[in-house]
Every structure is written in C-alpha cells, then in structure tokens.
C-alpha cells in the first residue's frame, strides 16, 4: 500500500495505491490523520489505483470526512473501481462523500 500526498494550493491530492486492508490502514493512519490539517480546503482521494478497501480503510475515509465537516472543507473521492463503489453502496458511503469519475 502506498499513499502519495501532493499539495496544490488550496487542494490536496491524495493518491492511494494498492490494497487498503486492515494492516495497510494501520500503516497509513499517521498520514491520513495528518491530512485533517488540510480539511478546511479540498481534499481529493484519488482511488484510481486502489484495488481493495476494508472497513478499517472506510474508517479512515470517514474520519477525514468528519474533520472536513467540522472545518468547512470538502472530501472528494475520485475514480473508484466498480468493486469499491459496491462497498460504498452497501455501507451508505455514497451518500457521505462526493464521488466523481
């Protein structure tokens, strides 16, 4: 699992690569927590290369989304695979995030 964070002015682009399973989620928790500092702006979670997500990964997404709600920012989930979209649908996450292609 890899997380690549690029700051682009008021936007933060976060590229997630690989499998976000329980172990990987624990490994990238510091970076995801650090992103809360940027939660007053726009955070784009680029999931083009994200192959898999478990509930621990969903928890990281939701924690960031909650921080954005408090700080008045925005979290955009971009380019999820049909499989991950299905997980978002089952869990109601499609209603919590702005999901775009």
């Amino acid at each position: 699992m890899e997380i690549i964070i690029k700051n682009q002015g008021t936007e933060t682009l976060v590229e997630l690569v690989g499998r976000l399973d329980t172990l990987a989620s624990q490994e990238i928790t510091p970076q995801m927590t650090g992103l809360q500092d940027k939660a007053d702006g726009v955070i784009i979670l680029d999931c083009k290369k994200l192959e898999y997500i478990s509930s621990s990964g969903l928890r990281l997404f939701l924690t960031l989304r909650k921080a954005a709600a408090v700080k008045g920012g925005k979290v955009i989930v971009r380019s999820i695979s049909p499989e991950i979209r299905n997980v978002f649908m089952m869990t109601g996450f499609l209603n919590l995030f702005q999901v775009e292609d």
């Binding site: 509930s55 928890r59 989304r65 909650k66 709600a69 109601g92 209603n95 919590l96």
Partner: peptide, 24 residues
C-alpha cells in the same frame, strides 16, 4: 446492524465490519 442512512456528523466511525460480512 449499522444504520447506513445516517449523515456525516451522526455516523459512528466503527461497526461496519460485521455488517459487511452479513451484507456480502
């Protein structure tokens, strides 16, 4: 079971694991 209709503020952080097992 998880209440998937809740909004961002009300939605608890956990509780999705077992829910997903039963969904899938």
């Amino acid at each position: 079971t998880a209440d998937t209709s809740l909004g961002v503020e009300e939605r608890p952080i956990g509780g999705l694991g077992i829910f997903l097992v039963r969904q899938i």
